[in-house]
């Protein structure tokens, strides 16, 4: 068990370095220039632009920049934004809590809505409730997230005035974005929970339980649901990546602070150190979350514990 975990951590480190290098290459190949987002290029002279490029160090050869980047990284220096010289690490640290809050709230929405709908749908399979639950679940994954967000905003914020349209302070600002993002995850979880509940219901041990005279309710909730939760937990790990991706759009729609917006802006502005930093950070989060998910398996499912 311990050996397996160490192995995972080591290979994760490799993955993180790899993704960092990959991002550097992609960003290097990006056309465009951070200079274009720093000054009004129509009135700047070619000399001004060249000077600025030189000051930023982006006129050096590729390998030199790459070596420089990893050299600094080894010393724990994530670099600073080329746009406004802000150090990258504190910048991420400052924006991460808001994204974390959004992701956690969304995951909660996903799991609660997803499991309830999934269970309902499995218990009442092929009945109207099943169909409604599945359609609602599917709607979550079928609507473009920015559209869902804007619709929720128009109805609950502008029309009804229940929740603020923007901002990232206080739980009230969290409701609409978490709902938007959570419904996507819920769609996946409904499907997962329903399928695995149906499988478990047909499994031999449940049939045995039933034969032993356990009530249908007890069979469903005590045994079938417990087993069905495994894929739901797995989905959280898989969804961690999706969540971060979702924040890129959702944070823009609801004007929230967060790393999703930072990286979207940085990609557009070709602010390499920031893109690097955020990707590095998010790979780290992704790897950690999945490690935790794997470990939690051992707790939920004894079979995995034995095989590991």
């Amino acid at each position: 068990m311990l050996k397996a975990v160490t192995g995972r951590i080591l290979s994760s480190l490799l993955v993180i370095v790899g993704s960092s290098a990959l991002v550097f290459v992609i960003m290097y190949l990006l056309p465009g220039d951070p200079v274009a987002s720093m000054i009004d290029i129509s009135s700047a002279s070619p000399e001004t632009i060249a000077n600025l490029r030189h000051q930023l160090g982006i006129d050096r050869p590729f390998l030199l920049q790459l070596a420089d980047y990893f050299g600094k990284l080894l010393r724990g220096d994530f670099g600073q934004s080329v746009l406004n010289s802000e150090p990258v690490l504190p910048k991420i640290a400052k924006h991460f809590p808001a994204t974390l809050a959004l992701a956690a709230a969304s995951a909660a929405v996903s799991v609660i809505v997803g499991v309830i709908l999934g269970v309902l749908s499995a218990i009442h399979r092929n009945k109207p409730i099943d169909l409604i639950a599945r359609i609602v679940g599917l709607l979550g994954i079928s609507m473009p997230a920015f559209w869902t967000g804007i619709l929720l905003l128009l109805i609950f914020s502008i029309r009804l005035g229940w929740f603020p349209a923007m901002g990232s302070d206080g739980w009230r600002t969290l409701v609409l974005p978490a709902l938007t993002l959570g419904l996507i995850g819920a769609g996946f979880i409904v499907r997962m929970v329903r399928n695995s509940m149906l499988e478990v219901i047909g499994d031999a041990f449940v049939v045995t339980l039933r034969a032993k005279g356990l009530s249908e309710r007890a069979v469903m909730y005590r045994h079938a649901l417990r087993n069905a939760l495994i894929p739901a937990v797995t989905m959280i790990g898989v969804l961690a990546g999706e969540m971060l991706a979702g924040t890129v759009v959702i944070e823009t729609v609801f004007s929230r602070q967060g790393i999703g917006r930072i990286i979207a802006d940085a990609i557009m502005a070709k602010d390499l150190p920031v893109v690097q930093g955020v990707i590095l950070f998010s790979s780290l989060v992704y790897v950690v979350v999945n490690l935790l998910v794997d470990l939690s398996y051992a707790v939920i499912d004894p079979r995995v514990r034995r095989s590991a």
Partner: peptide, 18 residues
Amino acid sequence: DVLMTIPGILLALAIAAA
């Protein structure tokens, strides 16, 4: 694995921008 850690839309965003 490396590709997996970079969320799809960010990868798409970077490629589309590039």
